[in-house]
Amino acid sequence: MELNYLYITVLVILSIAFIIGMLRFIKGPTASDRVVALDTISIIATASLVFMGYIFNRYIYLDVALIYGVLGFIGVIIIARYLEGAL
């Protein structure tokens, strides 16, 4: 594994995006804001898992990213239905 400028640039940009999303997750005045921030953070985590699979040259990371995406989607939908008052 070698680090070149592409890997460093993309990983730094993704980390900054993750930290900014986390700030909104901590700060967000209502529960809906926090769920929106959680959705965004899980999408960023899925994309960065795929990119890390490319860096480490591991095919299995794509499966991990797929399962993480499915679980994040189900979690967001269940929390949203709970906030709606339907559960």
Partner: peptide, 19 residues
């Protein structure tokens, strides 16, 4: 490489947007 850079910039813009 171009698509990866574009995608990471759009992810950063989305995070700035929710902030």
């Amino acid at each position: 490489i171009g698509l990866v850079l574009l995608g990471s910039i759009f992810l950063l813009l989305g995070a700035v947007g929710i902030y």
